[in-house]
Each structure stands twice: as structure tokens, then as C-alpha cells.
Write a protein that binds this DNA or RNA. Structure first.
Lengths: 373, 373
DNA sequence: GTGAAAGCGCTAACAA
DNA sequence: TTGTTAGCGCTTTCAC
């Protein structure tokens, strides 16, 4: 409905209309052709200065705003990128999203964002939706689903995207397989974990409780792997009682450590799988009347804001999340912009480093540790 | 480049092509017309069951993905909404963004997001960009700019959007004026501030330090106004020394309170203009060896995650941020979907309530308070 | 229930 | 430097 009449209009005057202002309207008002208006607006073609000002004036007076969809359709270029996250609140995702948004904006792209709420089917549907939008790149962040069916379905979408000249970017999540056309941005998850475990060992700790993080998912299981590796490298036996995996949230850290404390734990330090878990652990410790780091040392992972906000500040592994988001777009658009379909799937790994705050000290004497009084 | 050849193809067979798969390809494969494919896909028109399955099969086998831009152009419907925030990291914005994203997704819309980084000119440019995208609604969140030129420019955009059948939504930010076509979602900023001040008074406090928040911007100045109003209502004189406005960040809370503590302050409670400031204040207090709430009570505003994360938990004013985001989209799309151009600018105010945690107690005896030792 | 045809608003050859 | 002319891929009358 509300379509403009055909051009077969009896009068020679501009036809009276109510619809949106189009490039034709601007052209008419400026006394030039639509092509000239287009060229002026896009500035990718020589236009006489006088013509240019006439056009600009007409645009201003008419309040003309180009229709991005018409442009996308005709020009075969959308100037948008998509990002799919678990949840826009979670700082882990939010920082990556910030990097994506900033880099995209810097390259003149708008950013489509969608949240899965941890639902893998929604994730697939959202990738489709972003494909429909013909986004120049679709970035998938963190939190993968460890399910072969899912992997197959996502692989199909990666291929479809690639066939359509776009690209699926895996940001901080496991690969879909060697032959799947994706771009990958990862960080040294295992290395960071090994480094901070080694840091704890260097501070004199031998009995370190590993707390939190799912057991299965490869990306995050890497942290535990790094922990084990560091222990092994120093010849410290791994005691399975000291490996307490579970979830990634603050609540898990609080509750599990609370239980452990009630039973009494024989450890001098806690390595929480991420800062959220660490914050929960700290709460349990404080509640139990235990001081950090005097009674127990504590480290986290990710270097989220909460690590700096708790008291004492958390020594943790810094992950350059925002940088990863930027890198995701850089890589994706590099493939895109350089017309070469050459690079079948570039991939990059960013480094991590330890941020020292106040939560680590030498091992305390008395053990096992229990809730006080 | 890469355009398909004209239809004047010598052969009767499907022409060999490499370009994207279009609705025509699906139609050919299913042995129906493009119109039928369209109707099947949109499900808004009767299609024979047999035909439907043929089409669905063709879609699946070809891996066809509809082109949203072509659809938008032809159907005059984009199914996207836009949101402009200061920064995607800031929980205040992130929660509202979550509401917008969820409500939009629930209504089959995709969400375009962009961040201003506090730059008003960027904000104007981003609204233009979202207009180009023909977003069904453009939501502007918080952080307004107190500048008549800016207001005029944004007003122009609100009008342009309205003329184009879209709508500008002001979410938690001041009105552009009575005649500007916008939708507004606000919260009871002043009421919340009055309520929590009254809560403090009820707990026995008479000398309350108000800390943080810009002096100028109307939205946030409302908090100070509410504070004053509650004091006045109880007949407590306002002492200007106890009004310490400034910024909205954690750093401000920390540094300003630290200075005040060094000089000694004669107050029994602190009302921080938001939870960030409160967190900073708490840090300064802890560092000074003062206990909350034993030595000093402390309240915040917004009920951001940090309020629950610090120890002791902050008693604060809960602002239903996510709900505001949802409401923004509901209102905007209600105007949109009900074709009535009737509602010139609906507006809604959501309520706030106090969340009680552990940071408020009875007034301490000894005063003035100083840094200990 | 289905097809043919027109056109959404723009860009990109190709001429001039 | 500018205008003319085809479409981009889809939806939607209007017929049948």
C-alpha cells in the first residue's frame, strides 16, 4: 500500500505526493538526474562543485534521508555487521561487543546485535536472521554448545554465509572444524591459566583449590588444563578433591566454597575459573570470617570490572576482550574488503597476562581451613 | 559488478549462474511462480499444502535465505529497531538495552545498536544512520546533552523520523519539548530520591551527605531535588556543605569522600547519587577504617549489580531499567502497528522502589567522622 | 490458489 | 561531468 503512482502522470508539474522523499525528488529540486544525486551523496565520483552545492541544498531543504535498503539492494553492499551474544549484560560479552561495535563504527558499519539467552536453537535462528540482513560479518561470541548436531547446523550456516560473501567469526569459542570457512579469534586460555597457577606456586602455594567452570566445553576446560599443566611442570601432584568444577557464576562460587568450608578444606589458595566465581568465593570466605590473603589466597580469571571492585582487589588473568572484538571485525572485513577469496579462514590468538592486585599472599600456616566460630 | 545477465538468454534451460540464490531460483526449482514462493514464506496468504511443501523443499535444498533489503524495499517494512547508548559496558545502559533487545526480538525485530561515547554530535549522526536503515523505532537512552542547539537538532530528527513513519523514543532522558513527536519512558527519579532520603531519616539520620551527580542535567538533578524535598518535608534544614555534587563515577565517590574524611565530616549517612559513586564511597570508608553501617550509613541509586556485590550490600533505589527498555519498544511499536497516527506522543513513567540490604543502620554517636589513625 | 507484471529507491554501466 | 537505462530481489495488486 501507499505506493507511488506510475510515472504516466498527465501534468508536467511535479506530481503532488505524500510518500517518502526519494532521490528523484532531490534530483528534481536540484535540476539534475538521480544519478548525479547518488554520486554527490556517495562522493565516489567526480561532481562539479556547483552541482554538488545545488544537490546538497536540495537534500537539506527536503530533509532527504537515503534509504539504506534500496542502496543495499542496488549496490550490493550493506555496511552492517552482526554480533550474537549470550546476554548483553554479562561483562564478558559486553566488552567483546564493545570492541565489535567500535571497530565496526570506525569502518562505517552499523552493528546488529542479538542475544541467545543460552539457547542454541535461538543462536542458529539469529545467525539466519543476520544472514537475511546480509551482514558483512556475523560474530559469534563465547559460550558454545557442545553438541554434534549443533555443530553441523552451524557449519552449514558458516558455509552459507561464506557462499554469500559474508563470513562467520568465532570469537572466543571453539572451532567448528578444520574445513569450515570461518574466521577465528581466540585467546590463550590455557596459557593464562598455567601462568596464574604458576604465579600461585611461586608465592609458595602447593595445595590449590580449582573452583568452577563447566567440565565439558573445550574453551573453558582449557583453563583447567592449563592449571594441571602448571602443576605438573612443577612436579606437584594433582589431587582430584581439589578440582571442583561446576558453573561459571558468582552463586556457584559462593555456595560451593561455603560447603567446602563447612567440611574443612586443606588448601592455601583458590583458583576460581573466572572473576564471578572468585567474587562468590570471596563472599563465602568473608562470611566465614576468613581473610584474603592472610588465611587464603584467591585468584580469578578474565579481569572483569568486579575484580577491581571487590576488596581485596583480585589478582587475575587479563583477557583483552575488547581487543578481541575489534580483531574479529578487522579480520572479517579484511577478507571482505580485499576482494580476494584467498584466505580460507584466518585465525588469530591474542595473549593474556596476569594483573596483580591484593588477593595473593604467602600460604597460611594453619590447615585445614574451616568456617570460623 | 557481478550482476545477473538480462533475461534475454538464448537457452530455455535455467541459465547457469553463480550469483546469490534468489526467489526466482526457488520458484523455478519448485515449479511455481515467485509470487507463490513469497506467499509461502510469509505465510500471510492461502497456499495449497502441496505447493507449500514443494516450495519448502526447494528452499531447503537450495539453502535459500531471503534478502531482507529487497523485502524491506518492496514491502515497506524493515523489522528492525535501533538503540543508541552511551556505552554498552555501562550496566545502566546495558540493562535498558537488554529490555529493548528482548522486546524487539519477541516482536520479530532485529536490534541495531550504536554507542555515542558521550559525544553529542555522534549521537545525532547515529540517529541519522538509524533513520537511513528505516528502523521502526529509534531509542535514545539516558545521558542527554544540555544544549539548546543540540535540542533543536534532535528535534528536527524526531520530526523527520515521525514523518517517515518511525518514532524517536526518549528513554530515561529529558523531553525535547511539548510539541516534539516522541515517545517517552521515564522513571520516578525524584520520588525515588525522596523515598530513600526519607528512609534514612526514618532510621534516625538528620545529617545526610549527598554525594555525586552532575549539577545541571535535569534527569539527574531530579535526584538532588527529591533529596531536598524529603528533607524539607521533615523540617530538616538543608546544609549546603552536605551537598557535594560532581560526577557519576566510582572514582568521584572515592576521591571526594576521601577528601571529606581527611577534613572530617559531620554526617551520619551518605546518599550517593548512584551505586557507582556509592561503591567508590564505600572504598574510601573502608580504607579509612570506618565501618558501614556501624560508623556511617550509605545508600546508592539504580540498583546495579555492584550494589549487591559490595560488602556490605547497598541499600539503594531500584530502577526497573530492563522494563523501561521493553516499555520503550512496546510504546513505539504500538503507535507503529496500530496504523493510527493518532497518538501524538505517548509517555509513561515507571515507578522505583527501595531495595534494603545491609548498608543502613542507626546513626553513630561520635562525630565528626575522620579517617582513623 | 496461482501467475504476470509493476514497481519499491537506489547504483552502476554505458553513452554523450 | 552528467544523463539514460537497466536492473538489484522482493511483494503486491490484478487477473484468471
Amino acid at each position: 500500500m501507499n505506493r507511488r503512482g506510475s510515472t504516466g502522470n498527465g501534468t508536467t508539474r511535479r506530481r503532488a505526493r505524500s510518500g517518502p522523499i526519494t532521490i528523484e525528488d532531490v534530483a528534481a529540486k536540484a535540476g539534475v538526474s538521480a544519478a548525479t544525486v547518488s554520486r554527490t551523496l556517495n562522493g565516489n565520483y567526480p561532481v562539479a562543485t556547483a552541482t554538488r552545492s545545488k544537490v546538497e541544498r536540495a537534500v537539506r531543504e527536503l530533509g532527504y534521508v537515503v534509504n539504506a535498503h534500496a542502496r543495499a539492494l542496488a549496490g550490493n553492499t550493506t555496511r552492517t555487521v552482526g554480533i550474537v551474544v549470550n546476554d548483553v549484560i554479562d561483562p564478558f560479552f559486553a566488552y567483546i561487543a564493545r570492541g565489535v561495535e567500535r571497530e565496526a563504527t570506525g569502518r562505517g558499519r552499523l552493528c546488529l546485535i542479538a542475544a541467545t539467552q543460552g539457547d542454541s536453537r535461538r543462536e542458529l535462528a539469529l545467525v539466519d536472521l543476520l544472514h537475511e540482513q546480509r551482514a558483512d560479518a556475523v560474530v559469534l561470541v563465547g559460550g558454545a554448545y557442545d553438541d554434534p548436531t549443533f555443530t553441523k547446523q552451524m557449519t552449514k550456516r558458516a558455509e552459507a554465509l561464506a557462499a554469500a560473501g559474508s563470513v562467520l567469526v568465532l570469537c572466543g569459542r571453539p572451532s567448528l572444524g578444520p574445513d569450515v570457512p570461518t574466521v577465528q579469534v581466540s585467546y590463550d586460555n590455557e596459557g593464562g591459566a598455567a601462568a596464574i597457577t604458576d604465579y600461585l606456586i611461586g608465592a609458595g602455594h602447593r595445595r590449590i583449590l580449582y573452583l568452577g567452570g563447566p567440565t565439558a566445553l573445550s574453551t573453558t576446560a582449557a583453563r583447567l588444563a592449563g592449571h594441571r599443566r602448571a602443576l605438573a611442570a612443577r612436579g606437584i601432584p594433582v589431587e582430584e578433591d581439589l578440582i571442583q568444577t561446576g558453573e561459571f557464576g558468582r552463586r556457584f562460587g559462593y555456595h560451593r566454597l561455603r560447603e567446602l568450608l563447612a567440611a574443612g578444606i586443606d588448601a592455601t589458595a583458590v583458583f576460581a575459573a573466572n572473576d564471578m566465581v572468585a567474587a562468590g568465593a570471596l563472599e563465602a570466605l568473608t562470611e566465614a570470617g576468613l581473610r584474603v590473603p592472610a588465611d587464603l589466597s584467591l585468584v580469578g580469571y578474565d579481569d572483569l570490572p568486579v575484580a577491581a571492585e571487590v576488596a581485596p582487589g583480585l589478582t587475575t588473568v587479563h583477557v583483552p576482550l575488547e581487543e578481541m572484538g575489534r580483531e574479529a571485525i578487522r579480520l572479517a572485513l579484511a577478507e571482505e574488503d580485499s576482494d580476494t577469496n584467498a584466505a580460507p579462514g584466518s585465525s588469530i590468538m591474542v595473549g593474556t597476562h596476569i594483573v596483580t592486585r591484593a588477593s595473593v599472599g604467602p600460604p597460611a600456616a594453619g590447615r585445614p581451613l574451616r568456617r570460623q566460630s
